[in-house]
Structures are given as C-alpha cells and as structure tokens.
C-alpha cells in the first residue's frame, strides 16, 4: 500500500524542503522504499539538500511531458539504498506541469515505492495545488509565528477542498510539524507557544523541531539531518515523526530550555 505524502506550508522559508529530506530519509532508514518528488519547478532545492545536484540529468517536467522515462529521471541516494529523488526542473516554470501528467507520474511511482513524498513550493498557486492534489497524507510545516500559522491555516483549508480525496469525500490524514522552534524566545514571549499553534490549527501534532545549527550544517553539506547527525535533537524529532507516520505510537518530544548557571544567575539567554 503506497502512500502519497505532501509536505506543504503556504509560507516560504519555514523548512518544507529540509523537512521533506529529513522525513523521507528517516522513512527510508526505517526500511521503507521512498521517493522524494520536488514540485518546486523553477526554484528547485531538494537536490542540494540531498547532495544530488551534480547527478541531475532528467527531471519531473521531462517525465510529465514524456521526454524521459521515469527510471531515467530517478536518482538513487548514495547513503540509503531505498531513498530516491525525482528532481524538479530549474529552467522551466510551474505551467509545464499538468494535472493529468502529474497523475500519471504519481500512478507510476505508486507501483514502485511505499512512500511518495512531494515537496510543495511555497504559495497557494498551481505548483502548490498540484503537489497536494493526489496526496493521502499531508504534513503541514509551520513556524511558531503568526504569519506562518495563518498561512498554514489557509493551506489546511485548501487540503480540505482542493485535493482529490477531499473532492471524493475521502479522509485526508493531516499532521502538523512545527519547525524552527526556539524555547528561549518562547520563554521570553517572542514566539508562539506550541499549544497556541495547535489550538489555532486544530490538527494532530507530528513533531516539534528546534531551531538548531545541526539542521543548517546538514543542509549545507547536502545531507539530511537524520543521516548526518542522528543523535541531534532535530534529527530525533524527525525520526520520531517518521515513526508516527508509520503508525507507531511514538511520543512528541518538545524542545526544552537548557539554562546554565550563569543564565540562571543573570537571567540571560543560554545556548539551547
């Protein structure tokens, strides 16, 4: 039983691509056959985050338009055998994708993979709606700040109306992944609390990923954080989230504020 999962957010820069790579790698590390599909045609990034940018020959647009066969465009990860990438085209724009073409590619991918993880572009236009169109599961990525939460709410509304499952009246699994969470800023009241975000969005929580240099380093090295530094708190959050996606009753660990002696004495922010 293959599952199509869209990673989406509405707002840009919240960590969709990083989360797609980390969750996809975590699912593959758990033994699943996973393909990551980059829908951000024209602004592709997923290949960089996976360190596959120098191996791209054909892309999603080529496959949708019939210029290349699917196996020619799939790139196999060198670290995890069961992880593949279907890259986006950098030179085309999102109008090159059609619902029928995407449906065909997704159907072909469903035969080969357990998980088809679609990295949605930001925004609510064609690219984002096509990325979510055929999804069975949605991971809504949001930062704990008002603009991101409102955009996430908008996207949830679209998931409930624009996807094939919604149109057929079938249930669509929705999960919330909170990223770039900073416990120190939450403590100072500069960032929304996890409970407040949950209260507004009202969908189940998949995980809370702390803002951390581990994530940035991993991205810059072209390696998902779950592979690069599995012991880091961010990687742990993604690994637990992947277990939840696989149906396990894994806990959600929330980042906690670590305070050193000096900060306890002087009330200053400590390195989280």
């Amino acid at each position: 039983m293959s599952k199509v999962m869209v990673v989406t957010s509405g707002k840009g820069g919240v960590g969709k691509t990083t989360s797609t790579a980390a969750l996809g790698a975590a699912l593959a590390q758990a033994g699943q056959n996973v393909v990551l599909v980059d829908f951000d045609v024209g602004l592709r990034n997923l290949d960089l985050i996976l360190g596959a940018e120098r191996r791209v020959v054909f892309d999603l647009v080529n496959v949708v338009q019939g210029d290349a066969k699917l196996p020619q465009a799939l790139i196999r990860d060198k670290r995890v055998e069961s992880l593949y990438l279907l890259p986006a085209s950098q030179t085309r724009d999102k109008d090159a994708l059609t619902p029928e073409g995407v449906e065909g590619v997704i159907a072909e991918l469903r035969e080969r993979f357990d998980w088809i993880v679609c990295d949605s572009p930001a925004g609510i236009e064609k690219g984002a709606t096509l990325a979510m169109r055929f999804a069975d599961v949605a991971v809504v990525v949001a930062n704990p700040e008002v603009s991101s939460v409102r955009d996430a709410d908008r996207i949830i509304g679209m998931l409930d109306s624009k996807t094939l499952r919604a149109e057929r009246g079938e249930p669509l699994e929705k999960h919330l992944l909170i990223t770039r969470h900073d416990p120190a800023r939450v403590a100072r009241g500069e960032m929304m609390k996890v409970e407040d975000v949950l209260e507004i969005l009202a969908i189940p929580l998949l995980g809370v990923v702390a803002e951390s240099p581990d994530v940035l380093t991993a991205s810059n090295l072209g390696c998902p954080v779950t592979l690069h530094n599995p012991a880091s708190p961010a990687a742990r959050a993604y690994l637990l989230a992947a277990r939840k996606l696989l149906g396990e009753d894994a806990p959600v660990e929330q980042p906690v504020l670590k305070r050193g002696l000096m900060s306890r004495l002087f009330g200053r922010k400590a390195a989280a």
């Binding site: 609510i124 409102r150 709410d153 908008r154 949830i156 509304g157 409930d160 109306s161 009202a202």
Partner: peptide, 8 residues
Amino acid sequence: DGPVRSGQ
C-alpha cells in the same frame, strides 16, 4: 461542523 480556515 468544524473550523472555518483562513482564506475561506
């Protein structure tokens, strides 16, 4: 019978 989402 549920929430009204942003943009709706």
